[in-house]
Design a protein around this nucleic acid. Structure first.
Lengths: 167, 167
DNA sequence: TATCTTTTTTAGCTTAGTATAATTATGTAC
DNA sequence: GTACATAATTATACTAAGCTAAAAAAGATA
């Protein structure tokens, strides 16, 4: 009964991901990937069964229902957007990006996520900004705090003899 | 005893913020801003007292210890960095930005936060990128999904073409 | 001073999420 | 086809964070 907590959402995602890799998903597998003991999984999963996200014959394998799969896909989509931002834009190492995306996914509002998506789109599809901007930011990260060193790669720099930028 | 949970961190921040506004902080005030009942506050605060973050005479006002203030400042600093990103870069409404920053603050890793800080610095201090980039992104948000409409404001665009902006 | 109101505290209950230990079911090997 | 190994489940208990209801302290007022 009752709604999905962040933790239950994590379990739904885990079952989905395992079922893509393994075919047969067992309580033990979930316990392993979630870093908990089997009884914990049984407890959470029994709630997910009541809520219609999961099906399981006694002592058998676990499967997501159609509802569960839809939910999982939506959750993983959210997670992926955030992951993409952390990895592609902020240039975080893949693991770090993944962990952070998974952790904060539950707490970001729809509006915030939408705006983040806008931003990723903006950065990665605008034909004028995309290549220079990301390259520029990469340099900024690598060279540390020396802004001017990074800035020589900027597209705007190339035309900066014409328009002097204040501030 | 034991460590700080995300929720306890929220209470420390709340006490700090209240003490800046009010002078005297009461259980009732914290209950109000945290959206809980007084006994909940008493319970959490009694743990924070044991851990040395808070001091209170019986039935009296609450005060952060030196340790508590340091902790609060560090937490609020983190929160502010994320808030700044959401508001200044992603252009979220202030309330939305604040709520999201507060919610995810506990879950973002130090590395991720550092990188976010880099990014804010990059966006807001690079003299070549700053003005054009943010202006450009604002247009992108306002004009929705039409990339090309947004892109006519790009500094790179001006460089290559001499066309007037269709707003 | 005595009473009434407000605030804090205590006591006891609930739910989510975890654990260990014991029990039950399944499956495989002889 | 019994016996052992593995896996799932049940029983029980703990912690964090919340609640209500009632008791106790402080403050205000007639």
């Amino acid at each position: 009964m009752s709604g999905l907590t962040p933790r239950k959402e994590d379990y739904i995602k885990a079952i989905y991901k395992l079922s893509e890799r393994n075919r047969a998903v067992r309580v033990k597998d979930i316990a392993q990937v979630m870093g908990v003991r089997a009884p914990t999984v049984v407890g959470i999963v029994s709630m997910l069964k009541e809520d219609g996200y999961v099906e399981q014959e006694p002592y058998g394998y676990l499967e997501l229902t159609a509802l569960g799969r839809e939910k999982a896909k939506a959750l993983i989509h959210r997670e992926q957007l955030i992951y993409k931002f952390f990895e592609d834009v902020l240039k975080l190492p893949s693991d770090e990006a993944k962990d952070n995306a998974c952790a904060i996914e539950h707490y970001i509002s729809p509006v915030c996520l939408e705006r983040l998506l806008f931003f990723i789109e903006f950065i990665s599809t605008c034909p004028h900004v995309k290549p220079k901007f990301l390259e520029h930011f990469s340099k900024f990260i690598n060279d540390g705090d020396d802004i001017n060193l990074a800035c020589v790669a900027c597209c705007c720099h190339e035309m900066s003899q014409e328009s002097e930028v204040a501030q």
